[in-house]
Amino acid sequence: MSKVIKFILFTVIALVIFRKDYASIKKQKDKKEKRVYISTFFLGYILVSLLVLEVNLPNPSDWIKQAYQPILEPYINSLKSHKLLE
């Protein structure tokens, strides 16, 4: 299946999910609730679309590794020296 077909399929599914799920939020009169829901849903939709379109998304695990690497280096080296299998 090509990327574009996948994307169209996902968009249709997302629209169906939105219609079904938003109906319960629509009943509430609170505008803030609706605004927060729509913006997070839209953000989620964009992220999944990028994934479907096979765009290279940055990996948050890499950020964690980079942030912790300087502090953890001695600990990691020590652990590696006890590793059973290399």
């Binding site: 829901y37 997070t40 990028l50 948050p60």
Partner: peptide, 27 residues
């Protein structure tokens, strides 16, 4: 965090985030 009235209001959008993160977090 957003001072919403129900616990599950954002569950569907969050499911989108979870699936994206689960896919990209370990190549």
């Amino acid at each position: 965090f957003f001072q919403l009235k129900k616990t599950h209001t954002l569950s569907v959008p969050l499911a989108f985030f979870i699936i994206v993160l689960a896919t990209i977090n370990s190549p």
